[in-house]
Amino acid sequence: MTDDAPATTASARLDPIPGEWRGVSPKYIVVDLVGNLIGGIVSVVVASFSIWLLHWGVWGWVITIAVAAVMIVLISLTPRRVRAIRYQLREDDLVFRRGLAFQRIVAVPFGRMQLVDITRGPLARALGLAELKLVTAAAATAVVIPGLAIEDAEELRDRLVALAETRRAGL
């Protein structure tokens, strides 16, 4: 109901919880970049192969170029996207945010965490990174903090488990 309010940047961009946000390791840009590159190459190859099969001629290659262009834009945005992954430990909950065009901010109360999971892919392991996953009774919570240094991830996990234990209630 704020139709008359001026279109300030504050109201356009979601920032419900100002405060000390922590980012993820810059090394995660490499992991994300490699994943995006592989994804981009696969989609370009699939697009060109199907166009070659269908004999669409010159116009078909426009589609390939478009796909490649979208992929290049996505890949070039990777560093910004990784920097947008942030989390904040407050007194009673963890707030997680990610996304540039599609922003999503989730708050998970410590008392609602059912388990905390650490996973590591091959590339992330080579760079000493790990991924922290929070599981609640709701599947839609879907909070995964990627790109944490392995020691940080383990420390955070232990801390979260301890916090969850002190605030545990029913479901």
């Binding site: 961009r13 419900p16 922003q103 999503r104 901010i105 989730v106 998970v108 009774a137 479901l171």
Partner: peptide
Amino acid sequence: RTQSVAVSQGPLER
């Protein structure tokens, strides 16, 4: 009973 709460915004919404 809420497990967590999320707020989200896409380009059109922005």
